[in-house]
């Protein structure tokens, strides 16, 4: 059991595709995505859970992929920024980030967008304060925070319009 060289079977559904390989247990989900699968949309900032640049969805929930061992989430469904627009059509949150000028350098943006998509599903979007609090795990060193909150509010408003539209 304590054979240090032993790789561990890893099987994941990443953006709808099955990935299976034997991996050293020390490989994080972030390093798997970037270094072995060329899914470089997910960024490495701090590598310590502090910045949110590496945010992806695991089983629909947002997590920091730099602190997750790839072998520790067997058969999980993983969604990265690449998986948001499978047919090349932007996700409404991606479109809103462009329209609201919600980034400058763009390094934090994939993580912000993945976090924002999860936030919408969680429903913590009743006020700007609530959005800011529940987006606090994503830092933006360019300080695009106002634009980011604007973008999220824009998508919330769209969704509300669509719902009222359906009801009418």
């Amino acid at each position: 059991m304590n054979d240090v060289s032993a790789d561990i079977p890893c099987r994941l559904q990443i953006n709808g595709k099955t990935y299976a390989a034997d991996l050293p247990p020390s490989v994080t989900l972030l390093d798997l995505l970037r270094e072995r699968l060329d899914l470089t949309g997910t960024k490495k900032g701090c590598d310590r859970g502090q910045c949110g640049a590496c945010t992806v969805l695991v089983a629909g929930k947002r997590v920091k992929s730099c602190l997750v061992l790839a072998v520790s989430i067997p058969d999980a469904e993983v969604t990265t920024i690449e998986g948001l627009s499978p047919n090349g059509q932007l996700h409404p949150m991606q479109q809103a980030f462009i329209e609201a000028d919600a980034f400058q350098c763009g390094y934090c943006t994939p993580g912000q967008i993945m976090s924002a998509v999860a936030l919408l599903a969680e429903g913590h979007t009743h006020s700007r304060e609530e959005i800011r609090e529940f987006m606090s795990g994503n830092l933006c060193r360019c300080g695009a925070y106002n634009g980011i909150v604007d973008a999220i509010e824009q998508v919330v408003a769209q969704q509300n319009r669509n719902h009222t539209g359906e009801a009418a």
Partner: peptide, 27 residues
């Protein structure tokens, strides 16, 4: 580098070798 296991029972986990750390969320 380290070795990794996923004990199936509490008993197995409790009797892990020396220099073992338990992993929960890992954060």
């Amino acid at each position: 580098r380290f070795s990794y296991s996923r004990p199936a029972t509490l008993d197995e986990a409790c009797h892990s070798a020396e220099h073992t750390r338990f992993l929960a969320g890992g954060t």
